[in-house]
Nucleic acid binder design. Sequence first.
DNA 1: AGAAGAACTTGACTTCGGTCAAATAACAAA
DNA 2: TTTGTTATTTGACCGAAGTCAAGTTCTTCT
Lengths: 227, 227
Amino acid sequence: MELTNILKNAFPSLSEQSLSLIAGRCSLAEYPRNEVLFLEGDKGSAFFLLIEGAIKIFKTSPTGQEIVLKLLEPGTFFGEVILLEKNEYPVSAVALTSSRVVRIPSDRFIELLDERFFRNDFIAVLMAKQRYLTERILYLTSYDVEERFFRFLIDRYGFRTSYVLDISKKDIASAIGTIPETLSRLIDRLKRREVISWSGNTLTVQADYLEQFSLEDAPEHTGRTPS
Amino acid sequence: MELTNILKNAFPSLSEQSLSLIAGRCSLAEYPRNEVLFLEGDKGSAFFLLIEGAIKIFKTSPTGQEIVLKLLEPGTFFGEVILLEKNEYPVSAVALTSSRVVRIPSDRFIELLDERFFRNDFIAVLMAKQRYLTERILYLTSYDVEERFFRFLIDRYGFRTSYVLDISKKDIASAIGTIPETLSRLIDRLKRREVISWSGNTLTVQADYLEQFSLEDAPEHTGRTPS
DNA sequence: AGAAGAACTTGACTTCGGTCAAATAACAAA
DNA sequence: TTTGTTATTTGACCGAAGTCAAGTTCTTCT
């Protein structure tokens, strides 16, 4: 699928005209695992659209600790915060798995917001992000590690009994706001209680146990299929 | 100051024409201390502009705990997240002190975004909020209670040696993400170490001690004068 | 003033999850 | 394979901050 189609897919409400206008300025890029897209504080004049792979968005604390804000899934754009205001990224972005992204230069993008439908969709996404961050604060401050772990699974892969994990335990640990040691101990405990079993990169969970963490106030889940 | 002027002040980039259009639909409201403006999950068709007082924005955890996202200061609008997308507030808002707000009905507001300057300012505010929430996550997850306390003071009242507090200790505790007992003990410890002194609602801090928490990566501070 | 109820403090106790250190396993380049 | 690097596990330990339970002190309303 070439660029125009990708963009059409990501911005369905954008007119054909604007689409081709912007498509000419965008470029496709590939980032291998662990490659940095941008770091907090970097000046930037473009934002990104994730096509394939997984990107980690995080901030770094004064002591060097990484605080993960979100693991992005294909189809979402990020870094758009440089569009107006300061042109400095307030967060860092790193590829967790080999990823393909579209780079969208910011300079002419703002004009596209003249189109009402597109603009409304765009603003709606900004507001969804605001909701997400708000949920994330609740998630990090009022659930314990176990609950965060299961909610992570449901949120990222959907509610299932078997998960094929595409990221490392280390990355899962930081995605749920803890450290590898703690996750390792949690997994050990859960295995012993026979709530989960883990072999290779496949995790199996007792559905009835998992249920307690599902739905209700879980952040909107995207039902991403594993692998 | 009457409505039109207030709005002009809050939305300086809005044309006179749109200003009078919208002003006619807005209304001024007063909320006494502890009054609820809206609760998480409420359907809403208006958002708000804070003129005077202090509003607490928070989410409630499944166990009933309040997670404060932000204490608003005069001049900021909030609840705008109902404009597009769902029309349900994702957070709750309560007046911490007697407050005056403008209620802005959402129905015709979106049209105002046709004005490019206004729209850009509006979107810039949304992005600033995104940055804020991102900072808030860092703040809550990687600073200890003491550091959160002093950063709270600096962020809300500016860097000074003497603070006149307009909200209760209970509210300060929840604003910094802890409970009254813990704050009480912190204060006791700081007094004993002669880092602070507290009489009535006036708090005095050793400037050289406070310095370690200032500037660098502190969220933009508004230099709000006390009381 | 007096009573009811907030707000605040204090003490005793607990715990989750982090730190540090070391061992083991998995992986990838040469 | 060999070897260096990174990921994962395990053990011993610790500490910040929460819970629970009782005071104590302010407010505020009649």
